[in-house]
C-alpha cells in the first residue's frame, strides 16, 4: 500500500490539517516509508488466528438506565474560548 500527493492532500483536508502544497510530496514519501515498515507484519501468517477485539478477556460492561450525571453546564463550558448563557459559541456555520 502506498499513498500519493493527492491522497495526502485529501486526508489532510479531512483531518482539518493545514498543509502547504510544497509539503505534500515530502509527506507522501514519509508516510510511504511508515506504511512499508508496518507492512512487514504481513510476513506473519495469521490465517489461523482469531481477530483480537481487546487485550483483556472480558465482555462489554453495561450500565442501568439511570440518570447519574449532568446538571453542571458551567463546568462543561468552562474551558470554551467563547460562549454565552452556557452555550458554546463557534464561528457561524450555516448550510
Amino acid at each position: 500500500m502506498s499513498v500519493d500527493k493527492d491522497t495526502v492532500r485529501r486526508v489532510a483536508r479531512l483531518a482539518r490539517l493545514a498543509f502547504p502544497e510544497e509539503r505534500l510530496e515530502p509527506m507522501a514519501k514519509e508516510l510511504n516509508t511508515i506504511l512499508a515498515w508496518v507492512e512487514q507484519l504481513n510476513e506473519v501468517d495469521t490465517s489461523k488466528v482469531e481477530p483480537m477485539t481487546s487485550v483483556v478477556t472480558m465482555s462489554l460492561k453495561m450500565r442501568d438506565d439511570v440518570v447519574t450525571d449532568g446538571a453542571r453546564a458551567e463546568a462543561v463550558v468552562q474551558n470554551a474560548p467563547l460562549g454565552e448563557d452556557n452555550y458554546f459559541a463557534v464561528p457561524k456555520v450555516v448550510e
Binding site: 462543561v76 452555550y87 458554546f88 459559541a89 463557534v90 464561528p91 456555520v93
Partner: peptide, 10 residues
C-alpha cells in the same frame, strides 16, 4: 442568536 457566531447546545 448572534450575527457571526453559532451557539452549540450538547
Amino acid at each position: 442568536q448572534h450575527p457571526d457566531e453559532s451557539y452549540v447546545d450538547l
